[in-house]
Amino acid sequence: MSSVSLQPVSGRRKRADRGARAIVALFTGIALIPLFFILYYLLKEGLGAWSWDFFTTDPTGSFLGDPGGIKSAILGTIEMVAIATAVAVPIGVGVAIWLVEYGRQSWLATGVRYFIDVMTGVPSIVFGLFVYITLVVTNFGGASFAGYKGAIALALLMLPVVTRSAEVVLLLVPNTLREAAYALGAPRWKVIFKIVLPTALPGMVTGILLAIARAAGETAPLLFTATIVNATTFNLGDRMNSLPALIFQDVGQAQDRLVQIAWGAALTLVAMILILTILARLVQRRSRLS
């Protein structure tokens, strides 16, 4: 009797293990089903709408004849997101620098962090409502709806995302680099601009691109700040079209041509956001901070 006998794992336990693992795998598969369906429908319905004219003409607003393209919506989205980025990024990065380099653990910094957290949780439509109350209803700047007001609503949405992600990346910059620069006799502002920011740059760009991607897909805050129009405009004081708002409007129309335009616009919007997301991941891979 020299052989060692291992007591086999009971069948019940084995079955429980196999069953639970199967369920977990099944649920994971279920999570991906909508993704495939959405992408499939976007391509199937959206590609059919794509044509040269689709991208180069404005919507006509006509219910009977040719509905036109989506040029004004693409340009409006790009314009408003660009302005929002130009507003939100300097402020967001500035606040993040203050939190990491100056505020640190002070009560004021704790307060700022708390309020930024609060902002992150605010539904996008409430930001739209805020801009609507303060800038649109009051006819600020002489007009009610305007492209720049839409951009401000988007900037409010982006601000907490940019600040939070920039703060995380700035905290990753090793303190030894700051010390090396201080020990060389560098003034604080130069340490921040010449050493800390360049080191943190790739990581911050990732956060900013993801914030832009999020803002580009937002509909609710634009509906009652920039509203929906047909014509392309480069005047930020005018009402301005956008891809999400155009899709929202066309969903409500019981006309196949308009619905097809909505799918084409949706495919365009998703493609733009995917490009930004992929860019963000590529930049992140280049970052030297982990």
Partner: peptide, 20 residues
């Protein structure tokens, strides 16, 4: 302080060249 640090150089325990 900044002028002090220009006159007094420092080398740290771990090498810390600027990575960028």
């Amino acid at each position: 302080v900044v002028a002090v640090r220009r006159a007094i150089g420092m080398v740290f325990q771990k090498p810390n060249p600027f990575p960028t």
